[in-house]
Design a protein around this nucleic acid. Sequence first.
DNA 1: TAGATTGTTAATCGATTAACAATC
DNA 2: TAGATTGTTAATCGATTAACAATC
Lengths: 221, 221
Amino acid sequence: MNKKEISKAVINRLPRYYRYLGDLLEKDVVRISSKELSEKMKVTASQIRQDLNNFGGFGQQGYGYNVEYLYSEISKILGLDKKYNIIIIGAGNLGQALANYSDFERRGFFVKGIFDVNPRLIGLSIRGIEVRSTDELEQFIKENSIDIATLTVPKTKAPALASDLARWGIKGIWNFTPTDLQVPKDVTVENVHLAESLMKLSYKLAEKNELDQPENNSEEE
Amino acid sequence: MNKKEISKAVINRLPRYYRYLGDLLEKDVVRISSKELSEKMKVTASQIRQDLNNFGGFGQQGYGYNVEYLYSEISKILGLDKKYNIIIIGAGNLGQALANYSDFERRGFFVKGIFDVNPRLIGLSIRGIEVRSTDELEQFIKENSIDIATLTVPKTKAPALASDLARWGIKGIWNFTPTDLQVPKDVTVENVHLAESLMKLSYKLAEKNELDQPENNSEEE
DNA sequence: TAGATTGTTAATCGATTAACAATC
DNA sequence: TAGATTGTTAATCGATTAACAATC
């Protein structure tokens, strides 16, 4: 039916290709071969060619890839040619930081609303966007055709909120809460688990430390 | 020499096990089998057993795993039994949000300093920690034996900063800038690429949309 | 045309799952 | 003891890398 499933590993690498191509574009690089790119990105040229060929033949034998063209093709693959209306739920520090991150708009993500339960935050203006009460969520989502909700609320509030959002027509959840949300299959969740990221760093540090130690390998004394 | 290399896939899953076990612990669950846990986490029981056995036999035949014990073992594996001194470089919105995220302290990560180049931010106090000038970085790192630096600075500043930090003895970098940092191999980098995360969400949304469309498969008209 | 480099098939490697003997 | 469930080996599956014919 539709082309064979793209593996998750490939999808995870796409934004990175996009970033490197953007950097090349800024430096006015016109063409690049999979070999050159592979050296910059520290992956194999083979992997780059395999990955890209999941989506089509974007290169030319004997030439390589045109940077601008490939950049724009990947941008389409990533859906960055579309516009998304997004809201941020939870106007705490992280929510505010995300609201202030104007870079998202360049990529087509427009912050239409910010919500919180805290009366002290409601009414506050962040980059010109007023913080609203979460009571208004349902109506706001429907009236402003919101596609994506960013969740920066306390963990305990997340599950109920996620199912409400799904019911109200949200199609994507950018989840910053440390939980795995249960949502209907027409809703997509992308997680940012900061605490887990920090733990991975901690693991790697601890691991290196062990290798350095003269290593006391004996069990009990 | 040392036990066989742990794969990256396993390490990435460890913090998630840790989170689920923490949740079970809060619910006063005493024991759990790989089967039960696998149903909660939506992975195979086999994978759980394989993953854990990379680090040792934490379970007991016929019984399963003691939640508290396993939790504490994983915590050690992740290096969460150690204390880390951390600084945040870049006191913008995201830096401030991270500084305010007190939860890190519970896991042994102590924010000792916050730094910025902006004179308007210097002197400001965040959770009782004064924002300092980046001029003081080298001295501060050495005097306070800082282990980890969190990078929430503009992309352009990141590469030079990373190599300075390595020189000054930082062992881990939690990198929020959209770049892959070049560091000596005794320094560990853990990336949080928010823009890339959002692009993955965007990809998944775009992909679903395509499947819904009646799919106009013809090339050009 | 000759040289370069892709697109793609085949080979290898690694990770996941299944199966089951060991054992609590 | 019988039942349950681990730890671990073997089988399968998928992803990465290598190789090379196609072709610009």
